[in-house]
Design a protein around this nucleic acid. Structure first.
Lengths: 112, 112
DNA sequence: CAGGCATATACGTGTCTAGGAATATTGACG
DNA sequence: CGTCAATATTCCTAGACACGTATATGCCTG
C-alpha cells in the first residue's frame, strides 16, 4: 500500500470526484459543472488521483475523459482485512449480550 | 462517514499505532517503546484516534490501556461498497481478454 | 495559421498539522 | 502531604497543501 493512499482520500473534494466518476466516466468540464469547483482546482485534484492510480484518463479531442480504477480500492480492501476480526469481536460481544438477556429472561420466566 | 476518517488514517504513525493495537491492547508507554515516537506525540495521536472512534481506553492505575474499536473500520468498509463493482469490471475485462486469447487460439487451430 | 475551447501548470498565499520542548495533571504510595 | 510515574496539554515552529489568479499547452475549425 503506497503510504499516500489515505492522504489522497483525505480530501473531501477528491472523494466527491471519485463518487461522481463511480457513476460515469466524465470529462474535466463535466466534473467542474457537477461539483462546484474551479477548473484549475479540478485539474490538480485529478492529477493527484491519477498519480495515485485512482483514475485514468483517455484523450477525446481536446477533452480528457476520466475514469475510476480498481487497484487502489482493492489495496484499501486488503488493508482493511486484519481489522475485520474486530467485526467478529463485535458480534461476539453482541451475542454474549443477547445471551445474557436471554438468561435474564429465563430467570424471570422459569425456575432453575 | 465523518469527513475526517480518512484524514485520521492519512498519518503513517497513526496507522502503525492501529496496527500495533490490532495485535494487542497497549498502554501509552508500550506504544512509545514499540514504535519509535516521543510520548507527547504518541498522546496526541491517541487523542486524535480516540476522538475519531478508532480506539478507546480504559484506566489501569496511572496507565491508560488503549484498544482498537470496530465502528470506524466498518464505516470504511461500507464506504468501499460502491467501488466494489470495479472489481467485477476488472474481472470481466480479464475474462474478455482470456476469451480473446482463446479465440485467437481457436483461429490458429480450427477453421471457423 | 489564427482564434477559440478544454485542460494543465506556475506562482503566491493562507491554513492546517505534526513534532519538539516544556509544563500540567492524575494516581499511587510512602 | 511530598514525590514519583504515567500520561495529557500547551506553545512554538516548519513543512505541506488547497485554492485563486494568471498563464501555458494542445487540439480543433474556419
Amino acid at each position: 500500500m503506497p503510504t499516500d493512499t489515505f492522504a489522497v482520500l483525505a480530501e473531501p473534494t477528491r472523494r466527491l470526484i471519485l463518487d461522481q466518476l463511480c457513476t460515469s466516466d466524465s470529462s474535466v468540464g463535466d466534473l467542474v459543472d457537477a461539483l462546484d469547483v474551479s477548473q484549475p482546482t479540478m485539474s490538480k485534484h485529478l492529477k493527484v488521483l491519477r498519480e495515485a492510480g485512482f483514475v485514468s484518463c483517455r484523450v477525446d479531442a481536446q477533452r480528457r475523459i476520466y475514469r475510476v480504477e480498481a487497484p487502489p480500492f482493492e489495496r484499501l480492501d486488503e488493508w482493511l482485512e486484519p481489522y475485520r476480526r474486530l467485526w467478529a469481536r463485535h458480534l461476539d460481544a453482541l451475542e454474549r449480550h443477547l445471551d445474557r438477556q436471554d438468561h435474564a429472561h429465563d430467570d424471570s420466566q422459569e425456575q432453575r
